[in-house]
Every structure is written in structure tokens, then in C-alpha cells.
Amino acid sequence: MKERRDIAKKEEKNIEKTRELRSAIPAVDIYENEDEILLHADMPGVLKEDVAVNIDNGTLSLSGVRKLETKGVLKWEEFNDVEYIRSFSIPQTIETEKVEAELKDGVLKLHLPKSEAAKPKQIEIKAA
């Protein structure tokens, strides 16, 4: 009982928290051909500086923070400042050094090239 009381006291002393950034899952499209995997993610309102793409041990994680400046009185609101977060498992055969990313019109486009070894090979049958 004593411990519980201590916890309660601590909470009372806490200063008021400002609004936390909510996280959202961006919608993605994933395409693949023989040379690369393409990933398109919707991140409207996110600036280039606020996007982070990490590839670590077969996991690709995306993060984009949207900070919008607002002015005036809010009449209605359906979207807000948010952090777009999503992770994917990617094959080890992706060449991480050659990954390219571009952000245009609120869409993040990632090019994940496959390593030479992972590309499908046509095997020629020699005539005996």
C-alpha cells in the first residue's frame, strides 16, 4: 500500500504533457522486377529532412514526421501532425549501399536494387 501511495504522489507532481505525436501507418505499394524492388509510400506533408529510412539486418524501417504550421481558429480537423512509421522484412540480397530514395508530392519512392548473385539467371543448355 505504501508504495502505491508514492506512485500517486509522483503523478500529481508531473507537469502537464504537451500533445504527443501520434503515429500512423502509411499506405504502401510494393513492386518487384528482376533487378529491383520498388516501394511507394504515401506521406503527405512530410518534408525531405524529416524522413528517415533505415536498413538493418533484413529490416527496412521508414519514418516520416509531419509538422504543419497552423494559423487561426480550428473549425474542423481530420488530419494532424503525425509520424508515419512502418517496417518491412527485406531479403538479405538487397544491396543496401545502392538504395535510392526520393520524395515527391508527398510520396516516398524507394528503389531497392538486388545484388548480382540474387538475380535470376538463364541457364544455357549446351548441345552435346
Binding site: 500512423a24 473549425k75 488530419f79
Partner: peptide, 23 residues
């Protein structure tokens, strides 16, 4: 009209989300 933290404009949504401010 509540805040919606979903992915936004997707296959199933009817339109873009909007905000209105009066200044």
C-alpha cells in the same frame, strides 16, 4: 468529424481528409 490517424487516401476511402481554419 474526428481525427483519424489511418493511412488517409487509400482504396477504400471516399476522399481526402481536410482541415478548415478560420483566421
Amino acid at each position: 468529424r474526428s481525427l483519424d490517424y489511418g493511412p488517409g487516401l487509400t482504396l477504400s476511402s471516399s476522399g481526402p481528409r481536410t482541415n478548415l481554419y478560420e483566421d
